[in-house]
Amino acid sequence: MSETPGWSSPDQPPNQPQQPPPGYHAPPPPGAQPSIKPGVIPLRPLAVGEIVDGAIATMRRYPKLIIGAAAVVAALTQIIGLLAQLPFLDDVTALATIDPNALTEEQLAEQLQNSLVSLLGGTLLSLLPLLFGTVFLSGFITVVVGHAVLGEPVTFAQAWDEFKPRLLPLLGATLLAGLLITVGLVFCAVPGVYLWVLFALVTPALVLERCGVGTAFGRSKNLVKGAWWRTFGVLLLTVVIGMVISWIISLPFQLLGAASTGFSADPAAALSIGSLLLSTVGAIIASTITLPFSAAVTVLLYVDRRMRAEGMDIELQRAAGHGGR
Rank of each mutant, 00 (worst) to 15 (best):
M1E: 14
S2A: 15
T4N: 13
T4E: 15
G6I: 09
S9Y: 03
N15R: 12
P17G: 10
Q18A: 13
Q18I: 09
P21I: 07
P21C: 08
P22I: 03
Y24R: 00
H25L: 06
H25T: 11
P27F: 02
P27T: 02
P28I: 07
P30K: 04
G31P: 11
G31L: 03
S35H: 03
G39L: 10
G39T: 05
V40L: 11
A47D: 10
E50I: 11
E50H: 05
G54V: 14
T58W: 01
T58G: 04
P63R: 01
P63E: 03
I66C: 05
I67N: 03
V73K: 07
A74W: 00
A75M: 14
T77S: 15
Q78M: 09
I80H: 05
Q85G: 08
D91V: 08
V92F: 11
A96W: 08
T97C: 05
T97A: 09
I98P: 06
P100L: 02
N101F: 14
Q107N: 06
L108S: 07
A109L: 09
A109T: 09
Q111V: 05
Q111F: 02
Q113G: 14
S115R: 07
L116E: 12
L119A: 15
L120S: 15
G121M: 14
L124N: 08
L128R: 04
L130F: 13
L131P: 15
G133V: 14
F136A: 04
L137S: 05
G139D: 02
F140N: 02
T142P: 09
L150W: 07
L150F: 12
G151T: 12
V154R: 02
W160P: 09
E162T: 11
L168R: 06
A173S: 12
L175P: 04
A177C: 12
L179T: 11
L180K: 02
I181L: 05
L185R: 02
L185I: 11
F187T: 08
V190P: 13
V193Q: 03
L195Q: 05
F199C: 01
A200L: 10
A200S: 15
L201D: 01
V202R: 00
V202F: 09
L206R: 03
L206K: 01
R210G: 13
C211K: 04
V213Y: 09
V213I: 15
A216L: 07
S220H: 04
S220P: 11
W228R: 01
R230V: 07
R230D: 10
T231H: 00
G233F: 00
G233D: 04
L237K: 00
T238V: 07
I241R: 00
V244S: 00
I245D: 00
Q254M: 12
T261S: 15
S264A: 13
P267A: 07
P267W: 00
A268N: 10
A270E: 15
G274M: 09
S275Y: 09
L276S: 10
V281D: 09
G282Q: 01
G282N: 04
A283D: 13
I285K: 02
T288D: 06
S294V: 01
A295D: 12
A296K: 00
V299Q: 04
L300V: 06
L301G: 05
L301I: 09
M312Q: 12
D313H: 13
Q317C: 07
G321L: 02
R325F: 14
